[in-house]
């Protein structure tokens, strides 16, 4: 009896985790379509996805409950956490450098200000930047 109820509890928890993960993935999809510029889309794309994936993995682990496969799930989560910031940073940097950030949607932009200051200090004018990070 005890075994049965424990597995039932695990199943319910697994279902909740799977649902949460799927909801977060859906929210990521909605955000990717609805957010106005590249960086905002990236927020929606890379980050809720990590938690969503971890939730799905926890749900899967709760369903499997045993076996060497569980450690592989841990690895999947670790790899995802190690690699997704790299991708996010590379895409974000490339997007920023090529001016895909919509300046009018930013409240403050300290990077462009700092870049301009550094450029002035180096004696270049604002046009010295080959791929202007700010569109006028």
């Amino acid at each position: 009896m005890g075994v049965v109820s424990w597995s039932a509890v695990a199943d319910v928890l697994a279902a909740l985790c799977l649902l949460g993960g799927a909801l977060l993935a859906f929210a990521a999809g909605v955000g990717v379509v609805r957010f106005p510029d590249l960086l905002a889309r990236m927020h929606s794309a890379t980050k809720p996805q990590v938690l969503g994936l971890v939730l799905v993995l926890i749900g899967l682990a709760l369903r499997l409950r045993s076996g060497p496969a569980l450690w592989m799930l841990v690895l999947v989560a670790v790899f995802q956490m190690l690699t997704s910031p790299v991708a996010a940073h590379m895409v974000g940097r490339a997007g920023y450098r090529t001016g895909k950030v919509r300046q009018e949607l930013l409240v403050v932009d300290e990077l462009t200000a700092d870049q301009d200051a550094a450029r002035r200090a180096a004696g270049l004018d604002a046009d010295g930047d080959p791929h202007g990070a700010h569109r006028s």
């Binding site: 697994a14 799977l18 993960g21 799927a22 993935a25 990521a28 999809g29 990717v32 590249l38 889309r41 990236m42 794309a45 890379t46 996805q49 969503g52 994936l53 799905v56 993995l57 749900g59 899967l60 369903r63 499997l64 076996g67 496969a69 999947v76 991708a87 895409v91 490339a94 997007g95 090529t98 895909k100």
Partner: peptide
């Protein structure tokens, strides 16, 4: 832009991973 497509494909990949995980959880396969 290309980068927007990249981000979108990232979402697609992660969704695919979640799908495979979901199927594995459903049929308890490893």
């Amino acid at each position: 832009s290309m980068l927007d497509r990249t981000v979108a494909l990232d979402v697609l990949t992660t969704t695919l991973v979640a799908f495979v995980g979901l199927e594995a959880a459903w049929s308890r396969r490893t």
